[in-house]
Amino acid sequence: MQKRQQPPTYGGQALVEGVMFGGKEHTVTAIRRKDDSIDYFHLPKEKNRTRAKLKKIPFVRGIVALIESASIGSRHLTFSSDRYDVEPGEEKKEETEETSKLAMILGVAVVGVLSFLFGKFIFTLVPVFLAGALQFIVPGKTGQILLESLFKLILLLTYISLISMTPLIKRVFQYHGAEHKVINAYEDGLPMTVENVQSQSRLHYRCGSSFILFTVIVGMFIYFLVPTDPFWLRIVNRILLIPVVLGVSFEVLQLTNSVRNIPVLKYLGYPGLWLQLLTTKEPDDQQVEVAIASFEKLLEIEKHGVEVMPVIEASETGPESVPIN
């Protein structure tokens, strides 16, 4: 009996008034323009043998995937934020002098990676100092690690809750929900109609939000294996362990996704799904239409090739970036 072939795995990212989907070789964004039309942006994934080999190594592949995701995602985000509120034909050709200079020197992709790493450092170190300041109340290694993890969780939930109050981020979270609904509909083998997609859950096991929460949980257990005193050593440990925590958390995320259909083990992924109740919102039909358009355009490019798509203009985000209609 022939083994059933697994369908390709697709991932996505919510953007400003749009959604990006990525496959093995291509990434595509669809955004809703000011005149209610839908615009597209295609970015091929660069082929790199070294990176391809690293992505096959457990605990290393997660870090590589995260850096790649931050790099690609920042370029798609730049496209969506530059064009969503501009009438077609009136796109900005230049950003401010300061932004243009930064983009020229570092490149949009590098800026995205640096932003991700900076955020991770802040998210890791602030709870360490908060817990250390209360060491006279909660002494001992176990108490300090638990307190540090609690502060990290509070910081995460507070940050998400605060930014979700802004209208722009709320809409991004709605597109995040639309992205998950499309992936769930695809994985269930349903035709890509608004009705079918809307019937799906806005939560998904293989989500970056779940990954962020797993870094808190996984980090707590890893920190028990290293000393917390003296305080300077704790700080050094936390910094050096960032790639370890990221790598292990990625494997935990993959594990929870692979066992999500097993009755008892499916609960392993529930903490991440609970966090997604904050990072996703129910989308409206127009937002779902954009997500469907993005996913179908990606499938079309994978099937027929990007050369069949008419090029509008060269993109400011790099020579490999191609807006399409």
Rank of each mutant, 00 (worst) to 15 (best):
218 V>G: 10
263 P>Y: 01
91 E>M: 02
34 K>D: 08
44 P>K: 11
54 L>G: 07
151 F>Y: 13
223 Y>M: 15
20 M>S: 05
210 S>A: 10
32 R>H: 05
119 G>F: 12
219 G>Y: 09
135 Q>R: 15
298 L>A: 07
96 T>W: 02
148 E>G: 10
84 Y>T: 03
10 Y>H: 11
312 I>H: 09
115 S>L: 13
132 G>S: 14
85 D>G: 00
138 V>N: 09
228 T>V: 15
206 R>F: 05
75 R>A: 11
307 E>M: 07
241 L>H: 03
208 G>C: 05
11 G>S: 07
193 T>G: 10
150 L>F: 15
244 V>N: 09
284 D>F: 10
88 P>L: 07
159 Y>A: 13
116 F>R: 05
110 V>E: 04
23 G>K: 03
52 A>L: 02
138 V>L: 10
166 T>W: 05
292 I>Q: 08
194 V>N: 08
209 S>T: 15
310 P>S: 03
314 A>T: 15
258 S>F: 00
113 V>H: 07
209 S>I: 04
105 I>H: 08
195 E>I: 00
100 S>H: 00
259 V>A: 04
107 G>D: 02
246 L>P: 00
318 G>F: 09
210 S>H: 05
317 T>H: 12
287 Q>M: 15
267 Y>A: 04
18 G>Y: 11
201 S>R: 07
303 K>A: 13
189 G>L: 06
268 L>P: 03
190 L>F: 02
51 R>A: 11
308 V>N: 10
95 E>M: 12
193 T>L: 06
239 I>S: 03
72 I>L: 14
101 K>Y: 10
159 Y>W: 13
26 H>P: 00
311 V>M: 12
199 S>A: 15
133 A>I: 00
70 A>H: 06
282 E>D: 12
271 P>E: 02
3 K>P: 02
179 E>R: 04
180 H>E: 02
248 V>T: 07
130 L>F: 13
71 S>G: 01
172 V>N: 07
321 S>Q: 12
164 S>F: 02
102 L>R: 13
289 E>I: 02
63 I>V: 15
291 A>W: 11
39 D>Q: 15
2 Q>L: 11
230 P>G: 08
14 A>H: 08
199 S>W: 02
75 R>T: 05
146 L>W: 11
115 S>F: 12
109 A>P: 00
315 S>Q: 03
295 F>I: 08
12 G>I: 04
210 S>E: 02
56 K>G: 13
276 Q>M: 01
61 R>E: 08
210 S>D: 03
9 T>F: 11
173 F>G: 05
129 F>A: 14
321 S>N: 13
245 V>D: 11
196 N>D: 01
170 K>Q: 13
263 P>T: 04
312 I>G: 01
53 K>M: 12
124 T>I: 06
59 F>W: 07
93 K>P: 02
40 Y>N: 08
244 V>F: 11
225 L>Q: 02
28 V>Y: 06
113 V>A: 06
194 V>A: 11
121 F>P: 01
